[in-house]
Design a protein around this nucleic acid. Structure first.
Length: 840
DNA sequence: GCAAGGTC
């Protein structure tokens, strides 16, 4: 038997901590080495990796995009190198001394590969140590003890399947990305990327846009009548819709012929009564939803207004804090060792969930629902039973936490039952009207899960042959609508159906499309560049925008994992296909480049320059702010300013007077439409400044006065008439008409201001501009410097940061990332940097 | 400066 401690390696720190806790019976202690947690007890050590700690890439001599022909990457060697130095060195240190190694990474293909990477790192420093592999589906006492009592071996074929994927993805992605970027001369941060997953995802969005554009609306008419029981009971009134039987004998509501619609309407309008012809009553059960996997969680959070990225970020925080299970999962079947009663029991007695938990426990039986997908790596997302108090979480975190708790409740609740009532009535001898009513008989899971639609529609009790009064009729002209754009969660669902991306990456892929300038706005809309990339790919490298590539790769990986094929065979064949793709691509490189360049320019062209007839384009100043400038600069110096907040997006709509595209400024919740930039500038030039009182900074000395000013960028402010000698200014809202009232603020000798809105919104009495701005600043300093205002920082993390001496956003911004990461558990320097850029 | 997949 070998000497030395046993070393257990898991995929992540969280798993290491929990496994150590289970195996040690709670006696394990964390020791921080190199900034990495090592859990120790008896003769054992347990370390968590951070997913892949080594990465695949081409050797450094292939780094220069100009020097290396993209096609050369196809046959270039590929290296593996550590990407997480701290973890790798700590692992080596422990492995050297280990008497036995147990790989306990996640029980899936990528976990097997991560395990193999750990195995190779171990072997580098310790040739002889025995290495075992354990597999478990959830980190519970039973599963973990069982797995460690029955160790197995690493599955090298399965790991090789994962490695083949890495190689194929790198070679195709890097070679094609470099080719497109070089051909369009986009080499900085704005390179043009394609890949096996982002390609088909982008094509999905572009294809939908093509359908929308090609859509030819068709006119149709719908007719309605209000019917009322004759007893005069107001509640007996309901709306019914006209229908007829079409050529196939199916019920149809849409009338496609205007004359036919008018004839039918005249018949309805001339009738004062209708006779009930048929009444049908049915009871329907409505089953509770399946447990949450990542996709369904994102969808549900999406209907609460969270973006996919934000929903996942919150779920990850709640997981790290111990309140939720692992949020990246495909599984929709609870594991056997989840005891729903025990979990429900942990919520009894709590203010928010106590009554609902108790009512569920009082059910005769508890049978959780199950979805179609059962996997071996992680359970569906559910609450852990460790409960946060409301004060531990931000409002968003609490809302998401409650969603997950209530979803769990729903999965163990009873079905709902509905009564459907359908009434058909006849008017004018042979015209049919129908109404469908819906009443909730037993709320079932709806009682604990308010997110699903449980709205009723009322149709009164009527009997066959009953006479109803026709009290009103209506005639609505409508048009068929183009298909809707994909929303983020619908996109993620479709990716899942197509088998592209994974539970852990799909939302990141969408974010990547935004970052690359391929999509904008929400729901995402493709840019001209995105269309050009998809068009070029369709013509020369169809596989990279087709879901088939993933399907083929999945089949190849299956074959490798079963020993029926090999990594070398699969990657060689893939390289050959790519070679032939490049043959076509290289012949037409210039053409492709031109098309991409034109599209890039179209994405930022606002319209024709009024001075020289050239193109006005959106530009970015050295200070990072956006403005509009003439493409013929320096020959033409025409410029137009843009608002200082947000990123400009060209709208399809153009200005009737100037022909320029309207502009929308994207700034998260503060997004607004700026409109025609030339109209905005001209309006500012025409508007006289309106003096309202003395300037508090310079009136006494220089006689400066405050005036309401309109800037060419469209923003409005109260500023000093001596500008730029005096730069005193107060902001005014962007929206609404500014009205100066007769009321005066005695403190500042200024009139009170009122904002009125044309769209009928309640006017806003802003008051004295100075008082208003002071109040605004006070609010900002209360909420704005709060750490939790930075996305990605939850209540728990904020607390840890405060422990490390970082009290507010300002001190976060000035912190040194590496040393701060050292002090805060579970936070790396990159995360700190991300927060810092976000806080700016 | 490439991808996609883990993870924070």
């Amino acid at each position: 038997m070998s000497q030395g401690p046993e070393l257990i390696i898991t995929e992540k720190d969280n798993a290491a901590r929990r496994i150590a806790d289970i195996l040690s019976g709670g006696s394990a202690e964390a020791d921080r080495q190199n900034g990495v947690n090592v859990y120790k007890w008896g003769g054992k050590r347990c370390i968590g990796l951070s997913g892949h700690v080594v990465g695949v890439d081409f050797p450094p001599e292939y780094n220069d995009w100009r020097d290396v022909e993209p096609v050369e990457l196809i046959e270039a060697p590929i290296d593996k190198h550590p990407t997480q130095e701290n973890i790798v060195s700590t692992l080596r240190l422990l492995a050297r001394k280990a008497g036995r190694v147990v790989i306990a990474t996640d029980y899936d293909r990528e976990g097997e590969l991560i395990g193999k990477e750990a195995y190779e790192l171990v072997r580098e420093v310790n040739e002889a140590v025995p290495v075992d592999r354990v597999r478990f589906s959830s980190i519970t006492e039973n599963e973990v003890t069982d797995a460690f009592a029955n160790p197995d071996e690493l599955d090298f074929d399965l790991a090789a399947a994962g490695e083949a994927r890495q190689i194929v993805d790198l070679v195709w992605g890097a070679a094609l990305t470099r080719f497109l970027s070089l051909s369009a001369r986009q080499l900085g941060d704005d390179f043009i990327s394609v890949g096996r997953v982002q390609g088909p995802t982008l094509k999905l969005i572009v294809d939908r846009e093509r359908e929308i554009e090609a859509f030819d609306p068709e006119a149709y008419w719908e007719l309605f009548a209000d019917l009322e029981k004759h007893d005069g009971d107001a509640e007996g009134s309901f709306e019914a819709q006209y229908f007829y039987l079409d050529d196939d004998g199916n019920e149809a509501e849409r009338v496609w012929d205007e004359d036919a619609a008018e004839t039918a309407f005249e018949a309805l309008a001339a009738s004062s009564s209708a006779t009930v012809d048929a009444v049908r009553r049915r009871t329907r059960t409505d089953d509770p939803p399946a447990p949450f996997n990542t996709t369904q969680f994102i969808r549900a959070a999406g209907s609460l207004g969270y973006s996919a990225q934000r929903a996942m970020s919150i779920a990850e925080d709640l997981y790290t804090a111990g309140y939720l299970t692992y949020p990246r999962t495909d599984n929709t079947v609870y594991p056997d060792d989840l005891d729903p009663r025990e979990l429900l029991d942990s919520f009894t007695g709590t203010r928010t969930f106590g009554d609902d938990a108790q009512s569920l426990l009082d059910q005769e039986s508890i049978e959780p629902t199950a979805g179609d997908e059962e996997t071996t790596d992680h359970p569906p997302i559910h609450p852990t039973g460790e409960l946060p108090s409301r004060a531990d979480l931000t409002e968003d975190e609490w809302e998401v936490y409650e969603l997950v708790v209530r979803r769990f409740f729903a999965t163990v609740a009873e079905p709902a039952t509905w009564e459907h009532l359908r009434v058909v009535a006849i008017v004018a001898d042979d015209r049919s009207l129908k109404a469908n009513g819906k009443r909730l008989l037993e709320p079932g899971y709806h009682a604990v899960y308010p997110y699903s639609n449980a709205s009723e529609s009322f149709v009164p009790d009527v009997v066959e042959g009953e006479e109803l009064a026709v009290t009103d009729t209506s005639f609505e002209a409508k048009e068929t609508q183009p298909p809707r754009r994909y929303g983020q969660s619908r996109l993620i669902e479709t990716m899942e159906e197509m088998g592209i991306g994974t539970k852990a990456t799909r939302h990141d892929v969408i974010q990547k499309l935004y970052d690359r300038g391929y999509i904008e706005s929400d729901p995402p809309r493709p840019t001209r560049l995105a269309r050009a990339v998809v068009e070029a790919s369709e013509e020369f490298a169809d596989r990279i925008v087709s879901e088939e590539m993933t399907a083929q790769l999945e089949a190849d990986m299956q074959a490798i994992s079963r020993g029926e094929s090999s990594l070398a065979e699969v990657t060689e064949e893939s390289r050959e296909i790519l070679e032939s793709v490049f043959e076509g691509l290289m012949e037409s490189g210039d053409e492709v480049g031109e098309h991409l360049q034109k599209s890039l320019k179209a994405d930022k062209t606002v319209g024709e320059c009024p001075d020289c007839g050239g193109d006005l384009v959106i530009r970015k100043s050295r200070q990072g702010s956006y403005f509009i400038g003439c493409d013929s600069y320096p020959d033409c110096e025409h410029t137009l300013p843009l608002p200082s907040t947000g990123k400009p997006l060209l709208l399809e709509e153009t200005c009737e007077e100037h022909g320029l595209h309207h502009i929308k400024m994207l700034a998260g919740r503060k997004t607004f439409v700026h409109g025609c930039p030339l109209c905005k500038a001209e309006a500012a030039d025409e508007q006289e400044d309106e003096v309202i009182g003395p300037c508090p900074d310079c009136h006494e000395e220089h006689g400066g006065e405050l005036a309401i000013k309109r800037l060419r960028s469209g923003s409005r402010l109260v500023g000093c008439t001596r500008y730029p000698d005096c730069d005193y200014s107060l902001p005014l809202p962007r929206r609404g008409d500014i009205e100066v009232t007769d009321e005066t603020c005695e403190d500042h000798d200024l009139p009170e201001v009122r904002i009125t809105y044309e769209d009928g919104d309640e006017p806003w009495d802003l008051g004295c501009p100075i008082c208003n701005y002071r109040e605004y600043q006070a609010e900002q300093s209360e909420s704005g410097t709060d750490l939790e205002s930075v996305s990605g920082i939850g209540a728990k993390t904020a607390e840890k940061l405060k422990d490390a001496g970082v009290e507010d956003v300002d001190s976060l911004k000035s912190a040194e990332p590496d040393s701060l990461a050292e002090q805060v558990d579970g936070v790396g320097p990159d995360t700190v940097r991300k927060w810092q850029t976000e806080a700016d």
